[in-house]
Write a protein that binds this DNA or RNA. Structure first.
Lengths: 228, 228
DNA sequence: GTTGCGCCTTGACTTAAGTCAAACATCAGT
DNA sequence: ACTGATGTTTGACTTAAGTCAAGGCGCAAC
């Protein structure tokens, strides 16, 4: 598939005239990252941003003593690293491939030049950044205003949107990663999953979680209920 | 002072041709909020955004059981509520005046129309959202990867940038608000301030904090050191 | 002044969640 | 099938920080 068609298929660039898509194709570079490989690290100078063509990427920070907080786990066809392009400067967090991950790379300077000529593109980016802000806001809310069982309940309900009946979640990440995404550690996650099973809120085997009591999880997320 | 000059003086709109400033003046509305008054609450439909002309505003969320997390405390001439304008939808958090606060209000729909015609304005907004994202990222980092003494140390150092010698911080918010901004409660904040004083890291009276040992605070913020 | 109301501090106690350590499961590569 | 590396669970323990309750401080209003 040629570059222009790929770009036209990315939601972020939806609705752009094909002339703009060609212009984007002109600056985009295909790159391949393998599992575990780093796109950039916190503090690196921001050269541009990426769009995932396939695979999974985590955005995270490490504390000095090694604890990891994952901010997002992103999949096809989501972009990442955009914010740093407009704030100038450097990346505020690190990005690493969780699998084989082909991406498109857009150099910041050239991309900004394109935006200068195309307000529709600018509005797409504004929408994207706003969504990111919203997601981060709920992450802060989770970390600060909910305890771990509440966070987990909210996470499970969120993952479930769509797969209505039966509400089954295929874990696409390891429980280690999931713990880090929830701002906790694997041991705690494991214990809380067990407590949820004890109370018949969920059923879990190694790779899937089934929601048995949606209402119960919602109450937990809202802090109206506590685990025994 | 007339509307156009006010707008030309807002950093967010810096560098815009005066024609654009007039256009902005055409859609802006002056409004006045008194201490404690709410601009909007989490979940309200997003009608537009605000720019503070004077005074202070807090952006925050409440948990079901009443705990507050402050996201930002904003002052002249910072904007707020912008993200919701571009994501459509509703405000993800609440905003309330901490003092007498005259503002400019920009209706979302009209503002987006202006952006469509002026990429420079779009780039300003992109820069602004990116900065916000960056700030929220460090908030997450603080909540998740640092304990309260570390957060407080980082906060004090941050507040101090500029007032080089002597490094004195005038508290512009109550310690209650400060606790909520740090993701903790007044009792804990009070205790930790005391421990910092015991170790001669800071000197604090009711309304000011003086940094005595900058290096020590940095070590604390980096997790290299613990309070006794 | 004195009353009252937020704000701030202090102490005793509780609790959620992290640490450490061990055992076990799972999976890929040899 | 064995090996080693990761991922997962469990138990016993520690600890940071929250809760509850009481008392003091400071400021504004009467």
């Amino acid at each position: 598939m040629d570059m222009t068609s790929i770009i036209a298929g990315i939601p972020l660039f939806q609705g752009l005239p094909s002339k703009q898509c060609s212009a984007l194709a002109g600056i985009a570079q295909r790159k391949y990252y393998s599992k575990g490989q780093s796109f950039f690290s916190e503090g690196d100078e921001a050269a541009g941003f990426y769009v995932i063509l396939s695979g999974k990427v985590k955005i995270f920070k490490l504390s000095p003593d090694g604890k990891e907080q994952i901010f997002h786990i992103l999949e096809t066809p989501e972009p990442f690293g955009e914010a740093a392009v407009f704030a100038g400067k450097n990346y505020p967090a690190s990005a690493q491939a969780l699998s084989e991950t082909p991406v498109l790379f857009f150099p910041g300077r050239e991309f900004v030049n394109l935006i200068r000529r195309d307000p529709a593109l600018a509005l797409s980016m504004l929408g994207l950044l706003s969504m990111r802000l919203r997601k981060l806001t709920t992450l802060v809310e989770n970390l600060s205003l909910r305890e771990v069982p509440g966070r987990l309940a909210a996470y499970l309900l969120y993952q479930c949107q769509g797969n209505a009946h039966p509400p089954v979640i295929e874990l696409d990440v390891s429980k280690n990663q999931m713990a880090s995404l929830l701002g906790t550690i694997p041991e705690t996650l494991s214990r809380i999953l067990k407590r949820m099973m004890d109370e018949n809120l969920i059923k879990a085997d190694s790779r899937t979680i089934t929601i048995l009591d949606q209402k119960g999880l919602m109450d937990l997320a809202e802090g109206l209920r506590k685990l025994g």
